[in-house]
Simulated scan of single mutants.
Amino acid sequence: MAVLGLTKARSMGPVADAVERAGGSPARVFRAADLPLRLIEQPERFILLRDQLRLLACAAREIGDPALAARLSMEAGVPGLGALGQSVLSADRLDAAIARTNGMMGRMLQSSTRLELIAEGEKAYWTYRVTDASDVGRQMNELLALGYMLDLLRRFLGPGFTPHRAAVSGAPVTGRAAVELALGAELSRHSIALLSFPAEHLCAPNPRRLPRMPAPDMPPAPIADDLVALARHLIALQLLERRPSLPALAGRLGLSQRTLQRRLGTRGITFETLLRDVMEEEAELLLRHGQLSVAAVALELGFADVAHFSRAFRGWKGMPPRAWRRLMLAQPKPPAP
């Protein structure tokens, strides 16, 4: 199976806000992209990169804004990248900030993309490549990335900074004038997306350096090349909206149902086993950390009623969900670091 790119759902909320401000319907946009609207509430979840791009395309059509991707990243800026943004903005110089971005992006925010800084003589080139197997929405992803990259450069070099060159790959940019206005830079085409600027700027100090933060937790590398782990992840996403199904999972992975079943079988697992394991994990999470009642947890997981959920949970844990929750809450919490 080709490697599929993953990205955090951080852009879901800003997309919905932009659509609503323009008089569109976020619910309609998410339905068109076949994504649960509740992703807005869970920005740290990974989703397929192609799903993010489909959502952006649906949103741009909904409100008639071809520059939406560039506008979103410029408005959110580096702070919108969460822990990654905080770490980057605590760097003392621009070259250190770019190095942190390049080194942490794939593990913390988005896989199947590659950022590189190349210094050649008096010029520096900051490049961005999409390595996802799908060609759908590649240029839109590049425009989203260029917005964040430009925002970082301007935080060090001033709001009036203009790169020597800003380029994207692929066909001519739709709505180029609007996109250039959003980015504050003229666009050209190249084999890869890039920004070029004087290499001497790499030594620029950070004028508004954030306090140095503890190194952010580096989660395991995204699971896009592990079929079983990726399938488990996508099943958990389906639970946000409906009961997961084999046809829906196969469609998300770009496989036929028969092929998916066969590939899972070679790993000694079935869809039903995956679904059971994911539902058990999600039930644990909701009961241990959430404030939902047992009835609400049952509803979240797609059970017809509490009785069905309680029977399933007893099979997983050997006790009813209420008893398990009491047991977990009674355990002493670990001391603060």
Rank of each mutant, 00 (worst) to 15 (best):
S73Q: 06
Q52F: 01
A32N: 08
L81D: 00
A307G: 04
L72W: 01
A59E: 10
D95P: 00
A307M: 07
P14T: 09
F30Q: 07
F309R: 02
P244E: 13
G82C: 06
L327C: 02
H308W: 09
E282R: 14
A231V: 05
F309P: 01
P247H: 14
I223H: 08
A248I: 00
A16S: 12
R28E: 12
Q42E: 13
A236M: 08
R10H: 11
R258V: 12
L210C: 01
P14L: 10
R155N: 09
Q42K: 12
E122N: 09
Q238G: 04
M1N: 03
K8S: 11
W324F: 14
F30M: 07
A67P: 00
R232C: 13
P172M: 10
G318V: 07
R100E: 14
H164P: 00
R208N: 10
P66H: 03
A193C: 09
P163I: 04
M108Q: 12
A182P: 01
M105R: 10
L143Q: 02
F313D: 08
R232T: 02
P321H: 09
L230C: 06
R314S: 13
L37M: 13
L274V: 02
E142N: 10
R209M: 13
L143E: 02
R325H: 02
P334G: 08
L68I: 05
T7E: 14
E272F: 01
G80D: 02
L115T: 07
R208S: 12
E281L: 13
I269P: 06
V278L: 05
G13M: 09
T266Y: 10
I47K: 04
T127Y: 04
Y148V: 07
V173H: 08
G103C: 09
E120T: 14
V136E: 15
L53T: 01
H308S: 14
V294Y: 08
A99L: 05
L240F: 12
P163S: 06
R31Y: 02
L286Y: 11
V179S: 05
R326P: 00
R314W: 00
L195D: 05
A283W: 10
P205Q: 11
A33N: 09
P214D: 11
F46D: 15
G251D: 13
R232I: 02
L292A: 15
D135E: 15
P244C: 12
S111M: 05
L152D: 04
C58T: 12
A9P: 03
G251Q: 14
F156L: 06
I118F: 10
L55M: 13
E241I: 00
A248E: 13
L144F: 14
H289L: 15
I47W: 01
F271K: 04
G318P: 07
S188R: 06
A124M: 00
A76Y: 01
T162P: 00
R263A: 07
L183A: 09
G268C: 11
P247K: 13
F161V: 11
I63G: 05
F309L: 04
V278N: 03
G315D: 13
P337L: 11
L202S: 04
